[in-house]
Simulated assay, not measured.
Amino acid sequence: MSRTVLREALRTLTSKGLIESRPRVGTRVRPRHAWNLLDVDVLDWYSRVAEPMQFALKLQEMREMIEPYAAGLAAASHSDETFGALAAAHAAMAGARNVDEWVRADLQFHLSVLIACSNELLIPLGTLIERTLEAQLRLNAKRADVFNASLAEHTAVFEAIRDRDAHAARDAMTRLLSVTRARIEA
């Protein structure tokens, strides 16, 4: 490996908060609390080596903090275009014939809620957690009695957003995520 390639790799790891370099001290791995876990690559790498149940619960905690509020915002501020994307995702969930179709539609549903909330700072969170969320959705669909067991809960979120009822949307998303948590913990 050339020095140029090594320097670039070290620069990348430094920018992601994984290592630090100091003159006369050298290069060291930083403590985990200093890592930039809100970097797509770092989150993906971490999800592959973290204890699966612990990681799933941490991701679920993050979702429980963000998604109910985002659903309420989506109900209050969605546009025709963003609601159309949410409606398409919901229709795809209702029409899913297998786990793979369900997971793709379920992922699109949750990403569409974040987009429909019209908050530019929340939207990137969907892109950030997309890969790890997809894995969690797949696991939950396989743990359920049938892959689309949570369709009714998703429909409640969809209808509350459609009706522009922010309170009902928050409550429905909270109920949906409690079903997800129960499957993770099972």
Rank of each mutant, 00 (worst) to 15 (best):
R162W: 01
Y69T: 15
S77D: 03
Q60T: 07
A75E: 06
A70H: 01
A160F: 04
R28D: 06
E51F: 15
A92P: 04
V42A: 12
T4Q: 08
Q108W: 05
L10S: 05
P23M: 08
T155F: 06
M65F: 10
H167W: 13
L37K: 11
L107P: 05
N36I: 10
W35H: 05
R7N: 12
H110R: 15
H78Q: 09
E61Y: 04
P31S: 13
T82W: 12
E134L: 11
R11E: 11
L177A: 08
A116C: 06
R7Q: 09
A50K: 02
R11C: 10
F158A: 03
A70Y: 01
L18A: 00
V40T: 00
A74Y: 00
W45L: 14
A156H: 04
W102Q: 06
T27C: 09
S2D: 04
L107S: 10
I129W: 01
S150P: 05
G95S: 14
L111C: 09
I115G: 04
F147D: 01
F55T: 07
V29A: 04
W102S: 03
D39S: 07
A149F: 02
V146G: 02
Q108E: 08
V25A: 02
V29F: 09
L86M: 15
L73S: 07
R63V: 01
A56M: 05
E51M: 15
A144M: 06
S79P: 03
K16E: 07
A85I: 10
N98T: 13
Q54S: 11
P52Y: 00
L38E: 07
R175H: 07
A135C: 10
E67W: 14
K142I: 13
Y46E: 05
A96T: 08
A85Q: 08
S178R: 15
A56S: 14
K58S: 14
A85N: 09
V40N: 01
R175I: 02
L121K: 06
A144R: 07
R175P: 00
I123L: 11
R48Q: 06
V179N: 04
V42D: 01
T12W: 06
P68A: 10
R32E: 14
S118Q: 10
S21P: 06
G126D: 04
M65Q: 12
V179I: 06
R183F: 09
A94D: 10
L125V: 00
K16A: 13
V5N: 04
L128Q: 05
H167N: 13
R170M: 15
W45E: 01
V157Q: 09
E120M: 12
E51Y: 14
A74G: 01
H33K: 12
A76R: 15
D100G: 03
Q136Y: 15
A96I: 03
A91I: 13
R175G: 04
D163G: 06
K16G: 08
L111F: 07
R138S: 04
N148K: 15
R11K: 12
L59I: 13
I19C: 01
A160G: 01
S150R: 13
A141N: 02
A186E: 11
I19H: 02
V146P: 00
M53T: 09
D39N: 12
H154W: 02
R162V: 05
H110N: 14
A168I: 00
E120S: 11
I66E: 08
C117F: 09
A56E: 07
A116W: 06
R164N: 00
S178D: 10
T180M: 08
L151D: 05
S15Y: 10
A168S: 00
